[in-house]
Amino acid sequence: MTEALDPGVRRAVIRAALSVGVATGAYGVSFGALAVAAGLDVWQTCAMSLLMFTGGSQFAFIGIIGTGLAAAPAAIAASSLLGVRNGFYALELTQLLAVRGWRRPAAAHVTIDESTAVAVTQQDIRASRLGFWVTGVTIFLLWNLTTLIGALIGNALGDPRSWGLDGAASAAFVGLLWPRLRSGDAVAMAVVAGVVAVVLSPALPPGLPVLLAALAVLLRWRR
């Protein structure tokens, strides 16, 4: 820590972090609008982005709770299962960041896909730390601001179906899944999960088919 980080490297890290942050912040508008369409009020929508702050889990939660309050346990289970990966990111980041004291709970809150990706792809440990914090804080600010904007837009729109917001919700999930479909196995898992979930849907309460489909995939690909 005696030498300062090269100014060129520093600028490059900050630029990368800010561009990831701005791109992700834009998702917030869709989340806000879709959460309101799913039946949350503006406060509840904003509370999710402030307190949960992990996009995939937030989308999953509103996707299931939109079918009714009876699906709340399934919505919590799905959002929690999607949040498990953040714990593994934290595991990778704990040595890299070496956070202590009040910084640790703060680092935990901004431990998400994007801040982890920027941190672990740097060559220098100081660049990693800078990248993690700039990305995490930028996304946190923009995600919450754009969630509020999206929620207000969603409130003003009225009937969500005539604006195609249900189509937007499905499209948003496809966008979240897409970068993970990098292997034949991943595509096969997605197809199996999708088919199992649809086949089970007429027989089971909402939310449960999603969880059972995930379980089926884990059992099928456990080795």
Partner: peptide
């Protein structure tokens, strides 16, 4: 595998 399965199942049901 978990996010892939959950997201695909959510797309299908939604």
């Amino acid at each position: 595998a978990l996010p892939i399965a959950l997201l695909a199942a959510l797309i299908a049901t939604q």
